[in-house]
Design a protein around this nucleic acid. Structure first.
Lengths: 235, 235
DNA sequence: CCTCATTTGTACGTATGTATC
DNA sequence: TGATACATACGTACAAATGAG
């Protein structure tokens, strides 16, 4: 297992402190010089970690003032969860894996083209149902190429963020991607998962996510009920 | 006018070279040391400029290899039109203004909060119906604060891009924004505009767009039929 | 397969400018 | 006004990945 670079270790440490609520929204982080001496790294290294936290939306920096905690960016990548009725902060998002991750041949990658290498190695496939306060709101299908993911199928992904697992276990970071968005009617499977009536409007997203590993893409199809919450994103 | 910092000047210069096609997709940028000596700045400064180009999606960096031009990020965050059946290039998008732009009090800004200043000055309101090859696909409501838009209500917006008009006539540039996305059923008004049956699934976007003018935001609500085309975006 | 020059990544140091309180 | 904190920018050194030979 490769040792993580200092700036990444600090990034993970600070990110965790924010996720765990040790630093809450509005709090000031320790100054760069303080973090530098406390963690025994150069200020430049601290700045690199903080830069990343800014890009990821955890903090805001203000010259002369300090680094203010913005909060934990919730949701799936760029599109984050947003309640239409009340704040999302008090709500509880739980994740359930349907079936269990398995290796299989690609059926298709929705509307995206697959490379020959991807076709050859097959894919790791799993489905998840995510609920907010017990009500199902996301149903998603995820496919990864079966490359460099030792023991992935035996990992417990319940209530864990896929992105966190990929980053911490496999050093894979999602760097961006493309997505297509549609409004559709619920079919039989969606009706069952979401417990809605036939014809209920559902949001569908086809996504291809880029990573920091050359040639490694994550494909996912996300279905979402937007009755009580919308998908929110900045650009 | 404040002088731009070196790393930003270099960023702008390189960004422009990529936009203008001097460096095309797949090309290798000059090495960091070369850029450093050519532009007379430290390597650290070059790296800062390149970091920004990576974040913005213009280049990819590979250790031991160099910085590869990725291209011009298309419609950053702004969901762009994408056909599900064929290329959109050959299709014709026409815009029709429904009614005519008028000044009125804000009814509401969808789910967004309005400032006191915005409430006081009122808004410029108009609705548009955009069609692809004669079939209506977008119906949108746009609201601007009634500030600094002389003669706006008498402008002819037919078949013109609102963003282009704002930029060329009023020096207002859209710099980003937030949006919420929902899947809904067509109501009576949407049924009529889109000529679809009751209950047809429709995509709804509530958008608040930031501009380069402090305190000036554009609010819009976009309805979209995604039967034959999806909204596509990069992130 | 190995070596070597090149290129980016990490990490350190130092100095000075600028915004906030 | 002064102390503090972040921003910019110069420098050095070595590690790690790439690709040519």
């Amino acid at each position: 297992m490769a040792e993580l670079p200092e700036h990444k270790k600090l990034y993970e440490a600070l990110r965790r402190l924010i996720s765990d609520g040790v630093y809450a929204e509005g709090d000031l982080l320790p100054s760069e010089n303080e973090l530098s001496s406390v963690h025994g790294v150069a200020r430049h290294t601290v700045r690199k970690a903080l830069d990343r936290l800014v890009v990821d939306g955890y903090i805001l920096k203000h010259q002369g003032k300090g680094s203010v905690v913005k909060g934990v960016p919730k949701g799936i990548g760029i599109l984050s969860l947003m309640s239409t009725t009340s704040a999302v902060g008090d709500n509880i998002l739980t994740t359930k894996i349907i079936g269990r991750p398995e290796v299989r041949a690609w059926k298709e990658a929705f509307t995206f083209e697959l490379s020959d290498v991807e076709k050859e190695v097959g894919c790791i496939y799993f489905e998840r149902l995510r609920s907010l306060n017990g009500k199902p709101v996301f149903y998603d299908i995820t496919m990864l190429p079966n490359l460099n993911f030792p023991r992935f199928t035996s990992l417990n992904l319940e209530n864990k963020s896929l992105f966190d697992v990929l980053r911490t276990k496999y050093q894979i970071e999602v760097t961006g991607g493309v997505q297509q968005i549609f409004a559709i009617k619920a079919d039989a499977k969606l009706q069952e998962h979401f417990r809605v009536r036939p014809g209920h409007p559902v949001l569908r997203l086809n996504r291809k996510l880029n990573t920091n590993k050359m040639g490694v893409y994550i494909y996912s199809q996300v279905f979402c009920i937007t009755d009580e919450l919308g998908l929110s994103g900045t650009f």
